[in-house]
Design a binder for these strands. Sequence first.
DNA 1: TCTGGGGTCCTAGGACCC
DNA 2: TCTGGGGTCCTAGGACCC
Length: 437
Amino acid sequence: MYALVDCNNFYVSCERVFQPRFVGVPGVVLSNNDGCLISRSDEAKALGLKMGEPFHKVRPFLEQHGVWVRSSNYALYGDMSRRVVEVLSLFTPEVEVYSIDEAFLNLAGLRYAAPDLVQYATEIQRTVAQHVGIPTCVGVAPSKTLAKLANRLARKLPETQPRVWVLDTEAKQQDALRRMPIEDVWGIGRRYALKLRDNGIGTAAELAAMPEPWVRRHMGGVVGVRLWRELHGHSCLSFDPQECDEEGQLVSIGASKRSLTHSRSFGKPLCEHRLLREAVATFVARAAEKLRQQGSAAHVLTVLLGTDKYAPTAGPSTHTTVVTLASASDDTSELTQAALHGLQELARPGVSYHKAGVVLSGLEPATQRQMGLFTKSPELLAQSSKLMAALDTLNARYGRQTVRYAVAADRDPVWQGRSAFRSPRYTTHWPDIWKVN
DNA sequence: TCTGGGGTCCTAGGACCC
DNA sequence: TCTGGGGTCCTAGGACCC
């Protein structure tokens, strides 16, 4: 059995923890650059506000209806997420963090015997609310896909009762499948939803009733079959628990990624080459930091520049160039050199760019890098990793970009994205911590 | 004026090898 | 009626997720 714990409207909930006057009042959180709506309170949803709606379009509407607005504050959300996971790991050692606002619990490894799953799930919800102040929905079922489905049903329950839904019998599973529109099934996106509707399949139950070979042929082969079997209650997706130490504290957050991206839209379009270099160098520094955090080195670096994607011109708005490194590296200066070289090739004079970014791929463990013809000597390698370790320690302690390469930006560069409504970093930034007089 | 960012997995097809 | 067969690796693109 799996439980899916989902922090419904998570970013909105985080803001509400520190602004109780926001509770019960419609509110939204904006994406980076204050671009569009990415989290909405239930009250905001009831007003008809849609996910991903451009902020500038709905701004008058928001003001008119007294909807509060916040820019996104990932320092706050990331820390609150960590606290939620800490509470969950009190219940079972097997917690898989699926995203910033969702986690699967493997109930096969319960810390305490749980005769009643409803009661157990309710207790999880109550404890998270008490310790962190974040509301959750809990779905329990024999497969992840069904747990997700149960979770969506729990969401529809009124706030006045525990938002918990348990599928522990065949009859309850059948009932849940019948209630679930096909487009709300985990793993069915826009394309498949349309295709399935065309074939007269409108609910999860109708998909489950199709013969397996049909699903294999029309839904991407093994991917579709896995989904179909999950709907029948057979667990087919892997469970990847976080590692904990003896005291139950999480040691590492998530498995190593296969690629790493850092990209941002600019606050205003940029065409000056010096500023583009500054932005790209700044993004490389962040990407390299993430790379070292997971102990990887990258073989391939991609620089990307984006022009106005809403301009009515033909052709793609994102342009990329790929740089292959002679040997995998996690050194900011090497990666910066490679990126600036790529940028030189990519950037067209006189063109204004709206965003830029860096992708690191071809990742391998930094400790067992393959020796190549151009690999640095062990001495140089040791020197570089000492330097990077010192850089990361200083920046972790005194704030990002405290120590940086000269080509990267100082604080508050001219191209920085808009963030006009950001709340304080209540839990991670000393000057922002609440004072009680 | 103003429209986010960061991932995963799978398949098909081409290049290349013996 | 006819093309050898079987394997690996890489990449581009599609589909999905939060």
